[in-house]
């Protein structure tokens, strides 16, 4: 059996590197904020990472749902890949956020609504990866993962409602981009979003390839030894 080459690897790689260069230049030449100073440039990486992380969580649930519907392993591999890349981007968002907060508000963490929801969502997808690691049998792993991913994505609006009601505290600016960005800051911000989204696509495609190769290696191992209980991806 051929190891399938993931669709669009060249395309996503090319897109990613092109936008990366444009983004790096735009961030470099972006004006320095008159109030916050140079630290405000974290704007061009932190909120875009949030877009990427939530896209990852959404895709995990979407592909999980498609797997449950169609029963095709490929959807499960896409689902796992989205989750892993989403967790990576979410980790980076949760690291860059406190760095920015420490520099401007003087404290690493505050229990702001969006922070809390993101942290909870992060824990859900960490649990998702643990669940997959601890479940034996690739078909069962895929089913459990899909069900958990869907439950996890449903949690986002519920949490939003719950935390607003119970402990509503907002320090994040609302309606970003509604003219609230200073002159010359819109372009690098937009490029930041594009660069994170293309990085997401690029990494997911590469992760998908690794998942295919691991499944294939596990399949051959089963074939060679005749033993059950191969679980990879």
């Amino acid at each position: 059996m051929n190891v399938p080459s993931a669709p669009g690897r060249r395309l996503t790689a090319g897109l990613f590197y092109t936008v990366l260069a444009a983004w790096a230049f735009a961030v470099w030449s972006a004006p320095i904020d008159s109030v916050q100073g140079v630290i405000q440039k974290i704007l061009y990486v932190h909120p875009p990472l949030a877009f990427g992380a939530y896209l990852g969580f959404f895709c995990t649930a979407l592909f999980g749902g498609l797997y449950l519907w169609k029963g095709d392993d490929r959807w499960d591999r896409w689902s796992l890949s989205s989750a892993e890349v989403g967790v990576l981007l979410c980790t980076l968002m949760l690291l860059t956020g406190p760095i920015w907060a420490k520099g401007t508000w003087g404290k690493w963490w505050s229990w702001d609504t969006r922070l809390t929801i993101t942290l909870l969502q992060y824990l859900v997808y960490l649990a998702y990866l643990l669940l997959r690691g601890f479940t034996e049998g690739s078909e069962r792993t895929a089913r459990f993962g899909a069900v958990y991913a869907i439950a996890g994505v449903v949690l986002i609006p519920l949490n939003y409602f719950a935390i607003e009601m119970a402990a509503g505290r907002a320090i994040h600016p609302e309606n970003l981009g509604d003219g609230s960005l200073g002159a010359g800051m819109g372009m690098p911000f937009l490029l930041g979003i594009v660069v994170v989204l293309s990085a997401f696509a690029y990494l997911v495609v590469r992760r998908y390839e690794v998942a295919c190769l691991r499944d294939e290696a596990a399949r051959r191992e089963v074939e060679a030894t005749g033993s059950e209980g191969a679980w990879a991806t």
Binding site: L120, L123, V124, A127, L130, L131, Y148, A151, G152, L155, L158, N159, F161, A162, I163, M165, A166, A167
Partner: peptide, 14 residues
């Protein structure tokens, strides 16, 4: 608990 607790937040808050 790892699976359940993060999803229980809205129920518990309510």
């Amino acid at each position: 608990p790892l699976l359940m607790l993060p999803l229980m937040v809205p129920v518990l808050l309510g």
